[in-house]
């Protein structure tokens, strides 16, 4: 039996319906991604108990908590806007949810947590004087202090600068690894999800599309939506490559290779060869060029280490990197 399970939970709104089922193992780090409006935050609200589902059950450790009060669920949450309590200083914020009653021990614990999140000595600081990154670390410490069974993160880094994000996400992952806390982490940043998660859940229009580990999700997406949502790539009607085939073929730009000479498909039986591609654009991104090609009017994306000198090129992709998607 999984540690946490959401079974057929459903919530109807005027013009939106959320319905989701998924589960997590204890100590797992699950990210939820999806475009805005796909229901990620709503799903978190339902798990946390901020909102009640119309139907379905949520269990933690085999216990049904669907009807359990928000306070009794043992689920802490870290919010996008930090939500630190302005009426208390940093230390009191962290101590707020502690189960420990003894004052000295509470203080000791909050000091330790401040150290863990890299804010040693910040205890007496007024929360309004904290920077965004500091505030979110305090929020993280506050959530941990409550000794929850699961911590929910609702786009915790989206209000922060990119360099800070990288730093903080590694802190979050580090804490997860050292404390073994179960985490559900909502983000719209794919790279962030890939970097921190054990598994990733993709949502679209209020539904769960797929749950996979990061690499598999990237390399073996099971729909065009997931494929494009998790990274760049090329989709072509399948019949252009394989006769009498339905659906689409998909490949990532880094799998493809260009050749400025004409390639004959017969010479590369284990590759898919696209001849007579026109170079439309070439964007330099540092490590490589991203080439925008046109093949029979369809856009094709290919990564290349050099900019081609010719306007017409051929492209070859290993057949086992080409996905056939419905």
């Amino acid at each position: 039996m999984p540690f946490f399970e959401a079974k057929g939970i459903e919530k109807k709104y005027k013009d939106f319906t959320l319905s989701a089922s998924f589960s997590i193992e204890e100590g797992e780090f699950l990210s939820i991604i999806g475009p805005s409006g796909s229901g990620k935050s709503t799903l978190l609200s339902l798990i946390a108990g901020i909102e009640d589902p119309d139907s379905g059950t949520i269990t933690i450790g085999g216990k049904d908590i669907t009807k359990e009060r928000i306070q009794k669920r043992g689920i802490a949450m870290v919010f996008q806007d930090f939500s630190l309590f302005p009426s208390m200083n940093t230390e009191r914020n962290i101590q707020f949810g502690m189960k420990e009653k003894d004052r000295a021990k509470r203080k000791e614990l909050s000091d330790k947590l401040l150290e863990v999140v890299g804010l040693k000595g910040y205890g007496k600081r007024d929360v309004s004087s904290l920077s965004g990154g500091e505030a979110q670390r305090v929020a993280l410490a506050r959530a941990i202090a409550a000794e929850p069974r699961i911590i929910l993160f609702d786009e915790p880094l989206s209000a922060l600068d990119p360099p800070l994000r990288k730093h903080l996400r590694s802190i979050i992952r580090g804490i997860h690894d050292s404390l073994g806390i179960t985490v559900i982490y909502v983000t719209h940043d794919i790279e962030e999800a890939f970097a921190v998660s054990d598994r990733i859940l993709v949502m679209r229009d209020g539904r769960v599309i797929t749950v996979k580990d990061a690499e598999e999700l990237y390399r073996k997406p099971d729909s065009l939506f997931t494929a494009f949502f998790t990274g760049e790539g090329t989709a072509l009607p399948a019949h252009l490559a394989f006769e009498n085939m339905e659906g689409s073929i998909f490949f990532r730009p880094e799998e493809a290779e260009i050749a400025e000479d004409r390639l004959s498909p017969e010479m590369y039986p284990r590759h898919l060869v696209l001849e007579e591609c026109k170079v439309v654009s070439a964007d330099f991104s540092g490590p490589h060029y991203m080439l925008g090609l046109s093949y029979k009017g369809y856009p094709v994306l290919v990564e290349a280490s050099r900019k081609p000198r010719k306007a017409d090129v051929s492209v070859k992709i290993p057949k086992d990197s080409v996905l056939i998607l419905p």
Binding site: I70, I75, F79, G97
Partner: peptide, 15 residues
Amino acid sequence: IPDSLSNAAYTLGRS
């Protein structure tokens, strides 16, 4: 008063 502030307190187990 932002909802998230109250919700944060509830999720921390406070009445």
